[in-house]
Simulated scan of single mutants.
Amino acid sequence: MEIILRQENKNDFESVFHLIEKAFEKEKYSDYKEQFLVERLRNSEAFIPELSIVAEIDNEIVGHILFTKLKIKNNLNSFESLALAPVSVLPEFQGKGIGSKLILHGHEIAKRLGYKSVILLGHQDYYPRFGYKLCEKYNIKMPFDVPSENCMVIALAEDGLKGVSGEVVYPKAFFE
């Protein structure tokens, strides 16, 4: 099974919409609207085309990941970062390492583009294997009430989180 990872393009939008819908339809902690979030983010200033990535097997899109711009702000400073949301894999392809490949590939591209960190809300048992740590360790807070064990961050570069603290400021598209 050869997995091809590549940048999403406009011809993929409909397939990706349905993929995300299927990937989350049985997810316990979902509002089942992740596919609409991706559409809004694509049309926002937070969108980075190189960080909307699909996974293909035999010319079929089976996975997608999106990283978008966000900020971490405190009284003194504002820090650029990325949000990972969502990572989606068709149910019949889950558990085959596709999500892991998308995450690691996305991290590499983000590093090349000069980003130093990524923040996410996700399963506390899944993301630490990639190096994600609790946001509270860095005094980074979410702008809404969520369990702290689900709020995670990773430094993509050495000292990528040095001196970073504050509240996460998500793009407006996350809340529309």
Rank of each mutant, 00 (worst) to 15 (best):
E2T: 14
E2I: 14
I4L: 15
L5W: 10
R6Y: 09
R6M: 11
R6S: 13
E8T: 11
E8M: 11
E8L: 08
N9D: 15
N11R: 15
D12T: 13
F13L: 07
S15E: 15
V16L: 08
F17E: 14
F17W: 12
E21N: 10
K22D: 14
F24A: 04
K26D: 15
E27K: 10
K33V: 06
Q35P: 04
F36G: 04
E39R: 14
R40C: 03
R40S: 09
L41D: 03
L41G: 02
N43Q: 15
S44A: 06
I48W: 04
P49K: 08
E50K: 12
E50Q: 15
S52F: 06
S52R: 05
I53P: 07
E56Q: 13
D58C: 08
D58S: 15
N59Q: 13
V62R: 03
G63Y: 11
G63R: 06
H64G: 07
H64K: 07
T68V: 14
T68W: 03
K69L: 09
L70M: 14
I72H: 01
K73E: 11
S78T: 15
S78R: 06
F79N: 00
A83C: 12
A85L: 05
V87P: 02
S88Y: 06
F93L: 00
K96E: 13
K101G: 00
L104N: 11
L104A: 06
I109Q: 05
G114W: 00
K116F: 01
K116G: 04
G122H: 04
H123E: 13
Y127E: 03
R129N: 08
F130N: 08
K133S: 12
K133C: 06
K133I: 10
Y138T: 06
N139F: 03
K141F: 10
K141C: 04
P143F: 04
P143A: 04
F144K: 08
F144N: 03
P147H: 07
E149W: 07
N150Q: 10
N150L: 07
C151E: 12
V153R: 00
I154P: 03
E158K: 14
D159V: 00
K162H: 05
S165Q: 11
G166V: 04
E167N: 06
V168Q: 00
V168C: 01
V168E: 01
V169R: 04
Y170A: 01
A173N: 04
A173I: 08
F175L: 10
